[in-house]
Amino acid sequence: MRASAAIENFLEMMSAERGAAENTLASYARDLEAVAEFIAARGVNLPDAASDDIRAYLDEMNRLGFAASSQARRLSALRQFFRFLYAEGFRQDDPTGILDAPKKQRALPKIMSEEVVGRLLDRAKLEAEDPATPDRLRAVRLHVLLETLYATGLRVSELVGLPVSVARSDHRFLLVRGKGSKERMVPLSAKAREAMSGYLTLRDAQPGSDDNPWLFPAFSESGHLARQVFARELKALAARAGIATAMVSPHVLRHAFASHLLQNGADLRAVQQLLGHSDISTTQIYTHVLEERLHQLVSEHHPLAD
């Protein structure tokens, strides 16, 4: 079987049987095509590759300075690809079975303090409520985006892709469709509900709003606000609030949501459910952040600290 056909069949399986998202499928396609090109230069078809071929590719990634995380991601894609070929009877073995994943240090997430998040939200609210704000709808939209993100910890793609029907059904909760089309309920804070109500009033008054199914409509290919646009507007707001833009992004606010919950006594399992993590080990990264802060606190302030 040609490499391109094998990759296409694998992606179809991931989409149909495992419900992989478009971004996930695109990532698998890029990774597998890159490996296929390298192995083809060795005179080998990817579906027929041996362990030595794949090890040579990983060695080349290492030589070129790819991060261990990137190498591990490519190897993970290859493992799933060859397991698919084995399950379908195209191979009698899995050449990735004897390969070890590169060791990688898991980076701790950037965290914003509660005080900094408060300043950001206060600035967004101030601009949303100021009648002199040049683009009032955009300011109100940014305010509700921030309040909702910090209240729920949604992934930015989940947030900008919310249907308007979700916001109208029950202001106390949002029904979110996350990775793998899994649904979860997330509660909205009183401030987020108030911001949402004001935004919906303005949104509904816009021409053509009835015909757009998205909560945050925009003139884009998807029909809703692009996550890159939200990220730019967020950084601009941070600059106006006197906050370093390098420390602010939608994903950092998601991290802040999780770490602030844990700091204030929330259960790790509850935070896992709210974030939509399938594996609690992903959520446990936030406990490491808290441990580092406690260690730093003792090191700096304990009278017997070295």
Rank of each mutant, 00 (worst) to 15 (best):
R232N: 15
L294M: 07
A244P: 04
A231Q: 14
D267P: 07
K235Y: 11
D279I: 02
S259D: 14
R240T: 02
R240G: 07
A239R: 15
H255W: 00
P250C: 04
F230E: 14
L262W: 03
H288S: 12
G276V: 05
T245C: 09
D267N: 15
Q296G: 08
G276Y: 08
V248Y: 08
A241G: 02
R269T: 09
A231T: 10
H260P: 03
A236H: 15
M247A: 15
H251Q: 09
A226R: 11
A241H: 05
V252Q: 09
L234F: 04
N264C: 02
L225P: 04
L225R: 01
T283W: 13
L294H: 10
H255R: 06
A238T: 09
R227P: 01
A241D: 11
R269V: 02
A258K: 01
L234P: 06
L237I: 02
Q228D: 14
S259E: 03
E233A: 10
Q273H: 13
S249E: 05
Q272W: 08
L261R: 12
A256I: 13
E233V: 04
H255G: 01
D267K: 06
L275V: 09
L262F: 01
E300I: 04
V289T: 06
S299Y: 10
A238S: 10
L261N: 09
Q272R: 14
V252I: 11
Q284D: 04
L275H: 11
V298G: 05
N264S: 15
V289G: 00
T287P: 03
S249D: 06
I285G: 00
A246L: 11
V252L: 07
D279F: 02
T245R: 15
R293A: 13
L261Q: 04
M247E: 15
L261S: 00
A266P: 13
H260Y: 00
I243Y: 07
V289F: 08
I243F: 14
S278Q: 03
Q228H: 12
R293F: 02
I243H: 15
D267C: 10
A238W: 09
R227H: 10
L297K: 04
A246W: 13
L297D: 09
T287W: 04
E291Y: 04
D267G: 07
S299D: 13
L253N: 03
T282E: 03
A266I: 05
H251I: 03
H260F: 06
I243P: 12
R232G: 13
E291L: 09
Q263Y: 13
H277L: 00
R254P: 05
V248E: 04
